[in-house]
């Protein structure tokens, strides 16, 4: 049989667990190598508000993102490097 849905399907007519298992192992992975951006079927059709991602952090999303610069980095090192570099530039100019 087909599809990636072996693991994602909640219930099947085959209630016999063993039968299900053999089926799963024998499945031809024909459609396993899906497109990278293909969404998986959810295990359930719907879920309560508290199981949504938004509810996990009390609707707070700010901590998910951070500023794109880094002040912890030793600016001193960089200044030194920069001074070094400037010296080189100036020297090459004088030459």
């Amino acid at each position: 049989m087909a599809s990636s849905s072996a693991q994602s399907k909640p219930d099947s007519k085959a209630t016999d667990n063993k039968a299900e298992q053999t089926q799963a192992t024998q499945q031809k992975p024909a459609a396993a190598d899906m497109d990278h951006d293909e969404f998986e079927d959810f295990k359930v059709e719907d879920w309560p508000e508290e199981e949504t991602e938004a509810a996990q952090n009390g609707g707070e999303t700010r901590h998910l993102w951070e500023e794109s610069w880094d002040d912890d980095d030793t600016t001193e090192d960089f200044s030194a490097q920069l001074r070094e570099e400037l010296k080189k530039v100036n020297e090459s100019k004088r030459r």
Partner: peptide
Amino acid sequence: AWNLCHKDALRNKELILTYLIPCHL
């Protein structure tokens, strides 16, 4: 999509982030 997504649907959350991260950038 991210906010509504089921908290345990890791693969789908990963897919959403694949686009949300560059977007946010």
